[in-house]
Every structure is written in C-alpha cells, then in structure tokens.
Amino acid sequence: MLQKEWVDVVLTDLNISTMDGEEFVRKMEEDPAMRAIPVLVVSTDRTDHRVQQMLTLGATGYVTKPFQPETLREELERALGEAHAG
C-alpha cells in the first residue's frame, strides 16, 4: 500500500501477522522513498529495552497500549509536526 499511495503517518503494532513490526520499521527506514514518513509504534510492550530499540531503528514515537485517546492524538501531532519541520 505504501508503495502505491502516500500517507502522512504510519501507525503499526509490533505484533502483526504479516510482518514483524521491528522488520517493518527497519524496511521503512531503509527505503529512501519511505524514510520521510513518520512511524508511530503502538504496542503492549512497555519495556525500556523495546522502546529504545524501536526509536533507535527509526520509529518517530512509541505509544503503549492501552492508551488514552489524548495520548495518541498528542503523539500524532508531534510526529506530523516533526515531519513537516524536517
């Protein structure tokens, strides 16, 4: 889908059936055409290890489930703001 149409931001779980979320973020970062798209990881895993790992790989932000809607909105705004500024 990302190769066919532009999106403003991607939200991805780490535990998805078609591709490991970690692999997905890595592929996004490696693809010059997709690298500019901010990626928010949404996951139940709230360990510091995992959060740092995903941010290091290139995720723009990390939201742990369960979350309040305001938290997701704030993270989306921050990610979009950074993308437009960058």
Partner: peptide
C-alpha cells in the same frame, strides 16, 4: 494481546519479552 502485555509489564518491568500472535 493487550491484557497480556499490560500484565507482563506490571510483573516484570525490567525484562524483555516477546508476545506471539
């Protein structure tokens, strides 16, 4: 998935874990 992740985070905050599908 979410209950499991939330519970594990409460049990073992310092440990890495992998949830399967």
């Amino acid at each position: 998935n979410v209950v499991c992740g939330s519970e594990l985070s409460r049990l073992e905050q310092e440990s890495a874990f992998e949830l399967l599908h």
